[in-house]
Nucleic acid binder design. Structure first.
Lengths: 86, 86
DNA sequence: AATATATTTAGATATTTATCTAATTATATA
DNA sequence: TATATAATTAGATAAATATCTAAATATATT
């Protein structure tokens, strides 16, 4: 769970997640919306992947990133504990 | 919102929040559960306060920290957007 | 097979964040 | 008012994270 919070603590990474909410995208396609280098973006994608917030699938030359919503459920549960004291 | 995620990205700070879920506590009382220095703990408390996750009230020499659950609601909303696509 | 495209990995540097000790502020009490 | 206690602020250092360029890997195309 630590990895999830770490992953979400960065603005760029949250922006990536919001983009993937709309549609699955390749690394390069995602990169167009940022003005950091591709290796830097790749680093962020990797952190999101390690945290299980996204998953990947290769399609030819492209690696397609998509949201993995299962972890969001865990997050919801974590936060609920504070809102309603279990 | 950035401050909230940054605040939650640290294990010590999440532990503080969990403790405050049980009862309001003074800075010194919280400090007993950690083996970092008091200034370091104070730093974490400050980050939680800046993020509006906790609030403070002075009682004599003590400063009592308590959870501010309003931000948790915003967090829930943010996460729901991913789970259910608005 | 050679070349082009998409992406990642390696390695270095810069920035941010956490931590510490020492000093300061604020309140309480003898 | 002098002293003790609670907490924070200041300033320095250490550790973690983000970023970059260059090089490597994997697939596609000519």
């Amino acid at each position: 769970m630590d990895g999830v919070f770490k992953a979400l603590s960065d603005k760029n990474r949250r922006k990536i997640l919001k983009m993937l909410r709309e549609k699955d995208m390749s690394a390069g396609e995602i990169a167009k919306s940022f003005n950091i280098s591709k290796p830097s973006l790749s680093h962020h994608l990797n952190i999101l992947k390690q945290a299980n917030l996204v998953q990947t699938e290769r399609h030819g030359q492209n690696i397609i990133y998509s949201l993995n919503t299962t972890v969001f459920q865990e997050l919801l549960t974590w936060i609920y504990d504070f809102k309603d004291k279990e």
